[in-house]
Amino acid sequence: MKTGLNIGFFGSSLVSAYWNGAATYYRGIIKALHALGHRVTFYEPDAFERQKHRDIPDPPWADVVVYPAEDPAAVSRLVENAARKADVLVKASGVGVLDNVLEAAVLAYKRAGQTTIFWDVDAPATLARIRQARKDPLGELIPHYDWIWTYGGGDAVVNAYRSLGARACVPIYNAVDPETHFPVLPEARLTADVSLLANRLPDREERIDEFFFRPAASLPNGTFLLGGNGWHDKPLPPNVRTLGHVYTADHNALFASSNLVLNVSRNDMATVGYSPATRVFEAAGVGACIITDAWDGIDFFFEPGHEILVAQDGDHVTELVRSTYPGRARDIGASARQRVLRDHTYTIRAHQIESLLVHQRDNVLLMGYA
């Protein structure tokens, strides 16, 4: 591409991962797009105490605009101003404040030749909400966006969006930034047999009870480490230690210090499949041995048994914890790292995005997604 694009991106937060699991996904994508010569302005609301819990300062590879989110008219004007200078306008799902205003304004202020994208970082939940509502505002807007991009979901999500009138829908999967997630030395304060990094959410807690807390109770001599928000009032087995919010600067050490790193999907993402969490790729980038709960499409990203361990239920997790000794864990982690560096980096994802924006529908038709 001879000239880089100006991209206006409305999302939850680029600078804070506090109650915001998509932060490192946004960072990886946008940093890689910047390296290809594109310019991104990221607009995020001052909400949910995220600015008080920043992980990073404003980065050199994006301009960050933090806006007060109480006034719908002011937010609409912000979109109007962003549209004046952008070649591409992106509205990500789950901003959490005035989402409906943003989704409508991106289309209302679209200029001739400008590309609009609805980027869904929680497609199963979004689609379920639209199906359940008699008249969901977003459902009516979907056919007017040039693109629907999703954080995962495979053909099931693509077909669902097409049935709602989407012009084109493409998954842009999670990946790893090797400059951010890489092997480090273990730290004694984070040593554990099993670690899990997950905020407490209603649609994941039951699965965490099964895949994490039940194995912990079954292995009283094992050490289990739990990072993430919301667990302070949860009754825990005595061998589970909680960390609270773990800033992204500590993620590498957390992943490197456990024999096994557990991934537990949310209900809807496990049901739909093809929705690997950001943490899976980040832990693989560190060279961690990952156990994931079972869902369709795992083998599209990693080879089970060689690059990742797959558990059907809590009993299976318990068995894997007992049988996966450090030597084997290191071998699986090394294989996972090789795989993500080969097939799942944000540089690869950025080239995919660039190709889509350049070739538009011709490229999508070749991929079979439109």
Rank of each mutant, 00 (worst) to 15 (best):
T180Q: 08
S16K: 07
H53P: 02
R84T: 06
W147F: 05
L33H: 03
D122V: 09
P235Y: 05
A253V: 01
A123H: 14
P304N: 03
R200T: 10
G11H: 01
S275V: 13
A35H: 01
Y43R: 05
K135D: 15
I308F: 04
G153T: 07
S335D: 10
Q312L: 04
R361C: 04
P202H: 13
L197Y: 07
A74K: 06
G28Q: 13
T248D: 11
F118N: 02
G21A: 11
S257W: 08
G244I: 03
G327M: 03
D122T: 13
L138R: 01
P137I: 06
T115H: 05
A74W: 07
V66H: 15
A22L: 08
S265C: 15
F300E: 15
T324V: 09
G165A: 08
R342L: 04
N174T: 12
R361Q: 15
N6I: 00
G37K: 09
H359M: 00
N199L: 03
Y109M: 12
I142A: 00
L33N: 01
D122C: 14
I290K: 14
V66C: 12
G368A: 10
L262V: 10
S93W: 08
I353P: 00
D299F: 04
E80H: 13
E206S: 07
H344D: 15
P137Q: 07
E187H: 10
L33Q: 11
L243H: 02
S355W: 14
A74V: 04
Q132V: 01
D46L: 09
L138T: 02
W61S: 00
R27H: 10
V40S: 07
Y25E: 02
E70H: 11
S355T: 07
D293W: 12
H359P: 00
S163A: 07
A17M: 01
V79I: 14
F9I: 08
V184A: 01
E179S: 14
T41C: 00
N263A: 09
H251G: 04
G230K: 01
L185Q: 09
F212C: 05
F48V: 09
G333W: 14
V64N: 07
Y25T: 10
E282F: 08
V176L: 09
L5G: 01
V90P: 04
V280L: 03
P237E: 05
A175R: 11
L185T: 12
I353H: 03
S257P: 10
W147E: 14
P143F: 01
A329M: 11
P60A: 15
L262P: 14
A125D: 13
D313P: 03
D293G: 15
V264F: 06
A133D: 12
K135L: 09
F211A: 00
A73L: 15
S76K: 15
R204I: 13
A17P: 00
